[in-house]
Design a protein around this nucleic acid. Structure first.
Lengths: 204, 204
DNA sequence: CCGATGTTTGAACGGCCGGTCAAGCCCGAG
DNA sequence: CTCGGGCTTGACCGGCCGTTCAAACATCGG
């Protein structure tokens, strides 16, 4: 049975979301067709509309799904590390597109930009974006606070630092993802680490 | 004569670009139709294709045109101010969406995000984006260097500071434009000013 | 006033694609 | 074995929209 329908147990809903995320990453939101998603998922176009009310809702769900997934994977990675400093370094490692060769280069960030564009006009998406973004900022702030509690870092406003560091990462990641000739992954990484050290108050 | 065809002297090319930029700002790139642009420009749809090879080229041109225009207007503003500190403050004032009530709130930034999305897949757009971005960073660096030369600021790596400050502005502006409940224009403005003072080395 | 040249129009074409649907298929319960 | 209800298909429909084009129009030099 399992050989005949290998993925039957896995939820179709999720399979389709996966496929959609992959297509959006590759072709972009604007160029994503239902039939593309169906091809990647290995099903007929009709089935997509059986599981989702409309193309729009599918794509919106796929975007938040993929970003949420990225956040969860990153959180798991980080929780293993013992010190706040190592955690912070890891966050930055993972945030720099193409810095760690074993991770997809621009995948996550490309999706994130699509989220922004959509959120400008779609209130539903805007709400999801804010939640995702606050959670991300929050987790940076939590690391800083943990470091402060452990005596690793001096006491400062963790939320403000998280906002600044997170925004800097966003802004730099955009340039990197765009292949800007003056902003290499290495340069971005160095800038983030230096600003983090300076703002939080630790030595590199 | 001038009453009958008031804008006849002004180039149609530019009129249409203006109209296109306005439509993109309002409806978004994905929802922009040729007929929308024609309506706003007050001409027939056919004429749009008389002046532009295709819808795609029109929209790409409109995006770079509008962003270039914004940069030029900002540069003119800044050149009037005597000290580097005042210039820098003005740059930040103008960069914070909705901070100065007399300027359009999210107009310029919304277009800028559309540029990013397109640049991911369109090499032509990617090239334009890089030029625009480098010019913007350059002008921040120039202000810093001028301040250093005048003895206003201590000597530091102006290009690196410009990259960091510019990226921070990008990242924060995104949140502000998205109406993030935790990132008000005022908060963004304060963060930018403080980081600028700290990185460049002057007192607020 | 005449034609030539560059503009402008809007009707019409044609392809694309989201969404619908009737028909089959699979599978498990009885 | 049979029935029933979810799952899956793919053909089809209908509208939308970029693009084309023939015809009108304006302008101006001669």
């Amino acid at each position: 049975m399992s050989a005949v329908r290998p993925r039957a147990t896995k939820d179709r809903h999720q399979e389709i979301l996966d496929a959609a995320a992959r297509v959006i990453t590759e072709r972009g939101l604007a160029e994503t067709r239902i039939s593309d998603v169906a091809d990647v998922a290995g099903v007929s176009p009709g089935l997509i509309l059986y599981y989702f009310d409309s193309k729009d809702r599918l794509l919106a769900e796929a975007l938040t799904y993929a970003n949420d997934d990225f956040f969860v994977r990153m959180s798991r990675e980080i929780r293993r590390l013992p010190t706040a400093r190592e955690q912070l370094r890891r966050v930055i490692d993972l945030s720099v597109p193409g810095y760690l060769p074993e991770f997809g280069k621009l995948d996550e960030w490309a999706l994130w930009i699509e989220v922004w564009v959509r959120a400008l006009r779609d209130p539903e998406m805007a709400k999801d974006r804010e939640i995702l973004d606050q959670r991300w900022r929050q987790s940076i702030a939590d690391i800083i606070r943990a470091g402060q509690a452990a005596g690793e870092f001096p006491a400062r406003d963790a939320d403000e630092i998280a906002l600044r560091l997170g925004s800097l990462i966003d802004g730099l990641a955009i340039q990197v993802i765009m292949n800007d000739s003056q902003v290499s992954p290495e340069r971005m990484h160095r800038a983030c680490m230096e600003v983090a050290a300076q703002e939080i108050g630790f030595d590199l």
